[in-house]
Design a protein around this nucleic acid. Structure first.
Length: 297
DNA sequence: TTCCGTGGCGCATCACTGTA
DNA sequence: TACAGTGATGCGCCACGGAA
């Protein structure tokens, strides 16, 4: 059976980029970690990552397990914490919703740092409300939402955190790969590889193609960034991603282009109820996110 | 030469089972 | 219920090979 220690090891591998560094992170010897991984690979009858690649690259199976780890570990941590807290109340717990599939990459370190600074704080990162996060905020299911699309007319405060740039990712074999930027017209009828999000909600459609009256080709959906990028590398289509996601491409042969001459910048906001009792905690958390955004630029 | 990953082996620990 | 025997598991140590 897949165990939590396996998921933690996968996260350590992803964060550190090598087996030896991951072993240090997990406080075991490199040999022990190697045994552990081999045992897991035997159990699932698949290899998890490509040996001797620098930084290491996950196989499809490894990426699936990594995705599972990213979903489960925050929930386990949050549950463990709330059980430890017992009846102490939840004034130090923040239920955080995100509308972005690729935010996990940089959010996990932010959560770790925040917990180091605010000793008794707990962030429960949720993807359950990807498509109705603002409604979940209003009903109290979430305390805070990270979003690029403010909705006017609600009792919700929006704090601008930072701007990020959407980039078009194409295979190096794609004719577009030689250009520095792409125009909407060049994407007419081109296959779009995206996360499982309706076309109308995609930044590239809402803020780039639709204003120009351009319709892309068929939309092909993937759950995982690594799978998505591999499909792009195979020239199965193109993808528009925040620049931080493209760092996952490792050694894939991809080219990145600006969307339009000036690029497509998008804002990231922290949204919370104006009369929340957790305003102080939320503001401290948003400071950390803003700091992370500045470091990524 | 150094670093990293792997395999073989042994030790410590734990859970399970049988017996008094 | 307590204790001993047994097997499974996890990990460390050591040696080795391959790549940079």
């Amino acid at each position: 059976m897949i165990e939590l220690r396996h998921l933690r090891t996968l996260m350590a591998l992803k964060e550190s980029g090598s087996l030896a560094a991951a072993a240090k992170k997990r406080f075991v010897t490199q040999s022990a970690l190697s045994h552990q991984i081999k045992e897991l690979e035997t159990r699932i009858n698949s290899s998890l990552f490509v040996r001797k690649s620098k930084p290491l690259t996950f196989t499809h199976e490894g990426a699936r397990l990594l995705h599972l780890a990213e979903q489960i570990l925050p929930q386990v941590l949050a549950t463990e914490y709330s059980l430890k807290q017992g009846l102490k109340g939840d004034e130090h717990n923040l239920a955080l919703g995100i509308e972005c599939h690729s935010c996990f990459r940089w959010l996990m370190p932010v959560i770790e740092r925040f917990k180091e600074q605010v000793y008794d704080a707990q962030i429960d990162l949720s993807t359950r409300h990807l498509f109705d996060a603002i409604h979940a905020l209003e009903t109290g299911a979430l305390d805070l939402v990270l979003t690029s699309d403010p909705v006017l007319g609600h009792n919700i405060a929006y704090q601008h955190l930072f701007d990020f740039e959407m980039k078009l990712v194409v295979s190096v074999d794609n004719p577009l790969a030689q250009a520095s930027h792409v125009t909407p017209a060049q994407l007419a009828g081109v296959n779009l590889i995206t996360y499982p999000v309706p076309l109308a909600r995609l930044d590239i459609y809402k803020h780039f193609l639709e204003p120009a009256g351009v319709n892309p080709g068929p939309q092909k959906q993937c759950d995982l960034t690594s799978t998505l990028l591999q499909r792009v590398a195979c020239n199965d289509g193109v993808a528009a991603l925040p620049s931080w996601s493209i760092k996952e491409a490792y050694d894939l042969e991809l080219a990145t282009l600006n969307l339009g001459v000036d690029g497509l910048k998008r804002p990231l906001f922290g949204a919370y109820l104006q009369d929340t009792s957790k305003a102080h905690l939320i503001k401290r958390w948003l400071e950390q996110v803003t700091l992370q955004g500045q470091q990524q630029e």
